[in-house]
Amino acid sequence: MSRQSEFAQAILNPDLPVPEGLQNPEGAPAGKRFSVYRNNVAVSLSEALEVTFPVIRKLVGDEFFKAMAGVFLRQHQPNSPVLMFYGAEMPAFLEGFEPVAHLGYLPDIARIELALCRSYHAADTPPLDPTALQAIAPDDLLKTRLHLAPPVHLVHSKWPVGSIFHANSSGDTPPTEMHPEDILITRPEFDPQVTVLPSGAGAFIAALIDNATLGDALKQATITSGDFDLTETLGLLLSAGAITKISKGT
């Protein structure tokens, strides 16, 4: 094993011995001095996860989160020095992490927090002027495609994760019963917003993300929901600056 392989493994696994040839000033084994690296790596990666997952941390408690982060970071080291995107494996990790098996909504909360992080750092694009939509003849409108801004993300959940998210980030009343929610993340200027979508809007926006025409997206929404409101959903997208471009469908 190479020197750095041995070093890296010993940093991540405190049960492994300190690599040979690391010394204190008297030439004796380095001992606790090596622990500085173990501590720095574990603490700094754990702190990076705290930055990305504040609501998960609030839901499970600080002490539990730290312990869980310690397990996570030993299974999933960052694959890039750009730590703002560290933790992409968190939803899948939570799905398989036995101690939180009773909190079925946690993976989707993690999906929201990852989407917020990506949204925060996404490219800036000028929003579409709402009058551009009004300028299109009604017959042509259903053939157009709406292009969504890079900070826009969608999370489907069988849990009321948007309501749980708001209750644990802005002090809203927590949901009293379990129900599915579709969550839209937008970034009107610099601060990403979490919106619980009205009925059918999740299917509609998912179709837009898949590059469907407005007509096909509308079909998807009405199949999903009997009371989908196109005007309300378009208004929501436009006011959040979520649409950047409109193009004629072919």
Partner: peptide
């Protein structure tokens, strides 16, 4: 210093001989 090994980033500035 080094911080990445075999594609994994350890987020610390680790000494080298």
């Amino acid at each position: 210093a080094w911080s990445t090994h075999e594609g994994f980033y350890l987020n610390d500035l680790i000494a080298l001989p």
